[in-house]
Amino acid sequence: MGALTTDWLPAFKAVPRELFVPDVVWPGQAAGTGQEDSVDRRTDPDGWRRAVYADVSLTTQWDDGEHSGAGKGRVPTCSNSQPSMVFSMLAALDVEPESRVLEVGTGTGWNAALLSQRLGSSNVVTVEVDADNAATARARLGAAGYSPMAVVGDGAEGWKPSAPYDRVLITASLRRIPRAIVDQVRPGGIIVSPYATEYGGEGVVRLTVREDGSASGPFVGSSAFMRLRQQRTQRKHVREYLGGKPWPADGVRSVTSTSPDDVGDWLPMFAIGLQTAGVFPWAEEYDDGSYTLWLRDTAVTSWATVDYEPGAAEYEVYQSGPRNLWEEVRAAHRWWDGQGRPGFERFGLTVTADGQASAWLDAPEHPVPSVG
């Protein structure tokens, strides 16, 4: 995705990122989605400032606030987003003077401040589910001179009292576009949101709401946001799929020439996820560089494993259950490959008036096929 556009440059200059970053942060890695060790402004002010003005995300909370201290927690649950991503999404929002904007996911408050600087605080509503994050963001906004309506609540429900909105900016990853949010946008209004598949991969989609209550539009690039809290899932352990038996249990053996590496990058994962239903991967890695790709279904009926070894020409497969998950994933990958390996920007999404979402390639008239 692109960088800062000239119409947002005055807001960027007026709203320094450092005003919305806490003392302790975990900088994101330039490649991938992991975090570096923590940086503390009080003990390493120069390192903290370098992190703040680097083009990386900054994790600011772990485990919904249950983790404390300088070490990493289990799951990052709040961040100050990567600047290039922030401004790419703001550019996609395509605001006009006096646009009424709903932001879902206040986080540290930086986006709300940028929107308030550009549009005026009275035109911005921001919703945050975490009361502590909301309180600290509200304090930072006030100290910087901004006063958008800051609501503590379920972002998936939007904020109906201030609807309708001209624009909605969602700063958490979704697997489903909430119907309540679409309903709160006027016809012709725009929703910009990260959208993730069950299989993995994620892109930012730009939806335009229609008169009939549906919404449709293209993806504008890749993304990697934390999941909206209301759409998180708890995965069953692999032992639940094996019925208490040691692997490979009742799995049926075969071999494949398709490498697990082929289906493990962000873009092919996204393309596979748009075609498959309820399938998700997990890689069990080993010290010698080999790994086992596990595939499981959300219904806990089927599983598959594919063993990767560096330099191998064939890979051992075991599958069990009514669904042949590896064959589904391979079929989805073949379709993507056969279309010329399209990037995120060639895909789009339509959300019908009854809340059903369907993906398409190049135009809504060309739906992405379903596998399985």
Score class of each variant (00 low, 15 high):
Leu169Met: 13
Pro369Asp: 09
Gly264Ile: 05
Val351Gly: 04
Thr276Asn: 08
Asp287Glu: 15
Leu228Ser: 06
Gly203Leu: 08
Asp7Ile: 15
Ala143Pro: 12
Ser214Asp: 06
Val279Asn: 02
Ala172Gly: 12
Asp44Lys: 02
Glu314Phe: 13
Thr108Phe: 01
Glu285Cys: 12
Ala304Glu: 01
Gln356Glu: 11
Trp282Leu: 14
Phe344Trp: 08
Leu293Gln: 02
Gly201His: 01
Arg206Trp: 06
Leu242Pro: 04
Arg346Trp: 00
Ser84Arg: 08
Arg49Gly: 01
Phe270Ser: 06
Leu114Asn: 03
Leu174Pro: 01
Leu295Gln: 00
Tyr199Gln: 05
Gln234Gly: 12
Val127Leu: 04
Arg118Asn: 00
Ser122Tyr: 08
Arg323Ala: 07
Pro268Gly: 06
Tyr165Pro: 01
Val368Thr: 07
Leu174Met: 09
Ala215Leu: 04
Thr136Ile: 15
Leu141Val: 08
Arg186Met: 15
Val205Cys: 08
Asp166Ala: 03
Asp297Ala: 11
Leu119Pro: 00
Met269Ala: 05
Val300His: 12
Thr5Cys: 14
Leu242Met: 07
Pro310Arg: 00
Phe344Pro: 05
Pro248Lys: 06
Leu58Trp: 02
Arg210Tyr: 11
Ala51Pro: 02
Ala283Ser: 11
Asp183Ile: 07
Leu9Tyr: 06
Asn80Glu: 10
Arg334Gln: 13
Pro194Ser: 03
Asp212Gln: 06
Glu103Cys: 05
Arg118Tyr: 04
Asn80His: 10
Pro178Asp: 04
Val101Asn: 04
Lys236Glu: 13
Gly201Val: 05
Tyr286Asn: 13
Arg341Cys: 08
Arg323Tyr: 07
Gln319Thr: 15
Tyr165Thr: 04
Gln356Ala: 12
Leu4Ile: 15
Trp303Thr: 11
Ala31Asn: 11
Arg41Asn: 05
Ser81Met: 08
Gly158Thr: 07
Val15Cys: 03
Gly73Arg: 06
Thr233Phe: 13
Asp262Phe: 13
Gln319Arg: 15
Gly158Asn: 00
Ile170Gly: 07
Gly153Lys: 09
Ala283Val: 13
Asn80Gln: 14
Thr6Ala: 15
Ser68Leu: 14
Ser81Lys: 04
Gly155Lys: 02
Val124Pro: 05
Gly348Thr: 05
Pro248His: 03
Ala31Ile: 14
Val104Glu: 06
Ile190Asp: 04
Asp55Val: 09
Glu284Pro: 12
Arg346Cys: 07
Thr106Val: 01
Ala283Gln: 09
Val129Ile: 15
Thr352Lys: 00
Thr233Asp: 10
Ala30Arg: 15
Asn111Phe: 04
Gly153Met: 11
Thr126Asp: 07
Ala283Thr: 13
Arg239Lys: 11
Ser320His: 10
Trp294Leu: 13
Leu90Ala: 06
Pro367Trp: 02
Tyr199Val: 11
Ser79Pro: 07
Ser121Thr: 13
Gly155Val: 05
Thr298Leu: 13
Tyr286Val: 14
Ser88Ala: 15
Gly264Glu: 06
Phe12Asp: 05
Gly189Phe: 02
Gly188Asp: 05
Thr208Pro: 10
His67Cys: 08
Gly65Asp: 02
Gly251Lys: 05
Ser162Phe: 07
Thr292Pro: 09
